[in-house]
Each structure stands twice: as C-alpha cells, then as structure tokens.
Nucleic acid binder design. Structure first.
Lengths: 276, 276
DNA sequence: ACAAAATGTATTATAGAAAGTACAATCAAA
DNA sequence: TTTGATTGTACTTTCTATAATACATTTTGT
C-alpha cells in the first residue's frame, strides 16, 4: 500500500485514526465512491483536534485510498490492482523458475561463518562447523519484495560461487552441487521490519512482514539449507488450495498438490492489512 | 510474556524499538543468555539517541524479558515456556478438534449484515444478500491467540445459534447444517495490530500478526465461509512438512498430507492446533 | 444570489518526546 | 591495578505532535 518508506502519518493519534479509516476501507465498510464524515465530525467523534484528523486524511490521500476536494468532501477511491507475487505452497519450484525470469536479485552478503544457535541446531551441525551465510533481496520490476537469509553447510556451499548465487536460485545450485533434496520443514510467522530489512525492502520501519523459515534436508536426513525469509505482504502472498479428505469420523484438510494457480498476480487486490 | 496491553513505552520511536527487540527475543533470534548490543550501538543502528534506546530497554526489563546490569550489559532472560499453538496445514481438522477441548472462545460479535466488497465477491453472493458476521477470539490457557472474523451466507448461518458458535467450531456447525465442504482457498499474509485487535489479543498496537484468509466452498462451488484470521506469532505458528516430487525437469515441493508432526517446540502439551 | 458544508491555509501555544552532552557507577578482563 | 565497555543519572535544548482558533476557498443545493 503506497510504499510509505517514510511514515506518511506522524504522531500516534493521527496514525491511529489513519489505521481505523484505512481498515474501514479495506474491509469494504467504506466502499469506493462513499463519502467519509467531514473533518470536524471526525474530530468530534475521536475527541481530537481537527489538525489531527487532517493528518490522517492526508495520509489516506497520499496512499491513494481517497480523493479530497474542497466543498465536496473526502471520497473513497477505486483501487488499482497492485502487482503481487503469489506463491503457491504446492507448486514452489515451477513458480520460482518462472519468477526468476522476471525478477532480479541483490546479493547483500556472502561469507563463511561459524554456525551458531538455532541454525546449527536445526541443520544438525556439530559445534565449530562452518556455514556459508548469504543475504539476498529479490526484486520484481525493480521493486524488492523479499529479504532472504540463507545458511548452507560449507561443504555444499563451496560447490558454487558468489556470482552463481546472484544469478541462480539457491535451489538449482544445491541440485547442481550433487545434493539430493528430499524433504523440508516450513514455518510461517509474522515479524516487524527492522532498520536493515526496512531499508532493503524499501518500506517503513515497523511495517508488518511475512516471516518464513525453511529447513531443507537431503535423503540422508542431513540439513542442507536453512532459510529465513521476510516478505512484503503487499507484494507477496502465500497461497494454498485445500481439499477435504478422510471419512466422516476423521476429516481433514489436505493441501492440493501440483495445482497450477489460476490468476497469477492479476487479481489479489491492492488491499494489504486487515489489521484492527 | 508480560502482555503489555498498555504500552509501557512512551514515544513512537522508543516503542518501535521495544517491539523489534521483543520480537527478536520471541522468535529466538536472541536466545536466553545472549547479550544485546549496547545502548550506544543500538542508538547508532536505529539512528536515534541513547535516551530513546534506553526507554525501550527499560520497557523490556519491566516486561521481564531481559536483565540489565551496569558494566555487564543487557542479557535475555530465560522465559517461562510460552505455550504455542502450532497449526499443521496438512492436518487441520483433527488438530482442531483436539484443540477445542483445551481452548475457550470469546464471542465478540454476532449479527447479520448485508454482504459487501470482497466478502460478497469471494463468496460469490449477489448484491443485497445477507451474511452472518461473527468475531471470535480464541484462547489457550486464558491467553488469546487468534482473532477470527467470519462471514457465512445467511441461509446456512440460520441453522445454528449464537450459543452454538461460542461452543462449537464453525467447521462442525457447517457440517451439521448439511453443508458438504469440498475445497478451500487460503492466503497467508501479515498485518499490524490495530486498536481493536490489539485489545482483543492483549498486545500492543503495532505488533506484527499473522493474517490468514480462507474461503471455503461446498461441492456445488458455492462459498460457505469467509474467514479473516489474525494470529499472535508468539502463540501460534503455521507449520508445513514438504517433500520433493516430480521428475528432473519439473520438480516441485509437495506438501506432506496427514503427517503427524515430529519434534515439537518441546514440552508441556501446550500444543494443539487448528484454524477458524 | 445566497447559505451551508466541506477542504485549504495560517497562527499561536503547550506538552512531551527525542537529541545531545556530560559524568558517575559497576563490572570484567587484561 | 588499569583499561574498556557497559549501564545509571542528570541536565539542557530542539523538535514535533496536538490543541485551539480564525479565516479563505471551493462546491453544492436552495
């Protein structure tokens, strides 16, 4: 939603009102074409000054959510679709290959370090073993959408170069290095953008990000890749198709495997949050 | 994890730094025993004054997350096991049933409204059709972890009562209402906690939340449920086991269906799972 | 033409957050 | 013991969000 690399709304009260209105719009409570209450009325309702309401409203306009005209009022605008990368869980690699064609990568870091903490533990490494740590930012149409921190055991990582990593998906590099990928564990969470990641992803500190952790194992059960990924929710979505399986007693959702997604980015609407 | 329903931190910048550090601790990026960077270093990193960093750090101490000692530094404290609900995508319903036993529900809203915007569109309803809108908060050990907004077409929702919804998972109610659930589309994103959700989930405004949207369809392809869920990432995780499938040319990840999860965040039976 | 309602612009005042600086106290390691 | 890194404390200054008020400008409807 409108990059907002610098927080367009200053102050806590103003920001609070901004969020409330933004949510009302995102949820459809205020549909495109609807007129918002006047500044005075909103100031009264929220028990703040008109200046404060004004800041919130101007932020909405900057974000392209509303249009304001003197004498008329503030009306909700029709939203242009934002181009969003959609990842289907059941169809990861083909998507990635497709994506690689249209996307670029910035390699922010590439070095060998000693494995520590969770990384060492989850990859099943011994104390003192070294890993290749890399940080990449992936861009689509020159707009960054993901921040990827990977750790790969040294013995595997030595099979490819820094240049390789800047060009080729890590996945392909692993295969090329003779690794037979077998299974992976993936956890999805959420996180706030810190100073580093905010800069890399070109958004405001404190923005919400999708946090994904994936540990990949080969056929021997040895860990071959540890990924910590952060995604901009307005440019990246994780999508799943589920079907119902099992009999009466024990029904459950079963992810639909290998189903090519219908609409690529196209639909997906520019609405992000849904907070509040 | 010291709920901090009222932000103990004054100021926006200080509060943001507080949230970032808190999250780093919650996620395990900063493990118990680890030393945080010094106040000066943090001030530099975040481009703020030391006073501001200080406010954030003191809030962390108040929250019991860190211990601070002059001459030593600020170290992450051992945390009393936060009970985390882990949802396995491939195993939704059985988990949900298990969970229902150990968890409570607060019903915040239950009313019938006209379907608008995305909800109407995604459920495939005609203009003017009505839906039953409900807001529920799910709790585990009296601690809220999810905020669920559901929309169900009126004709289906009339088959169950408000009391039913406060007791029984919506899923079971749909089945009981004669609906044959067939498939669902699920999208995972991230969002910030707004005023409403922050209060309901007992955390600070501006915290990061997992945002999940699910649209459920019956065998005729008609939409029967629209769920917008927000989860506290420190109390809820979405987990997936993936295996590699396909041949050389077109390999892809395939979610492992029905696989009971192996090693879990350790002890204390604090694991259940499920969705809306 | 006029009035009503809305946004746009300006000014002043206040409180609180943040910056900047300086120095003291505490601990650990060389 | 000395040195360096850390937190604790104190103070002044600058900046900014907010409040309160006033008036101009634009549009719509009577």
């Amino acid at each position: 939603m409108a990059d907002e690399a610098r927080p367009s709304v200053t102050g806590v009260k103003a920001h609070r009102i901004f969020l409330l209105l933004k949510e009302a719009i995102a949820s459809g409570a205020l549909a495109p074409g609807d007129r918002l209450p006047g500044e005075l009325k909103l100031a009264e309702q929220h028990e703040v000054s008109r200046v404060t309401v004004r800041r919130a409203m101007e932020a909405l306009r900057e974000a392209g959510l509303v249009a304001r005209r003197p004498g008329v009022g503030t009306v909700v605008q029709e939203q242009p679709m934002a181009s969003t990368v959609t990842a289907s869980v059941s169809n990861l690699l083909p998507n990635m290959v497709r994506m690689s064609a249209a996307s670029n990568v910035r390699l922010l870091e590439f070095r060998y370090v000693e494995a520590t903490g969770v990384v060492r533990e989850r990859l099943g490494l011994k104390a003192g073993e070294r890993v290749q740590r890399s940080i990449r930012v992936r861009l689509m149409d020159d707009k960054p959408f993901s921040y990827l921190v990977t750790h790969v055991p040294e013995r595997i990582a030595l099979q490819y170069t820094e240049a390789d990593l800047a060009r080729t998906p890590l996945f392909a590099l692993l295969e090329r290095s003779g690794v037979t990928v077998d299974r992976a564990t993936q956890t999805i969470s959420a996180a706030l953008a810190g100073p580093e990641t905010a800069r890399a992803l070109e958004l405001a500190e404190g923005s919400a990000l999708i946090a994904l952790n994936r540990v990949v194992f080969d056929q021997t059960g040895a860990g071959v890749e540890h990924l910590d990924a952060l995604y901009r929710p307005d440019r990246y979505r994780i999508q799943m198709e589920l079907t119902r399986a099992g009999d009466e007693a024990e029904r459950y959702w079963e992810p639909l495997a290998g189903e090519p997604l219908a609409g690529e980015p196209a639909a997906a609407g520019a609405r992000a949050s849904g907070g509040g």
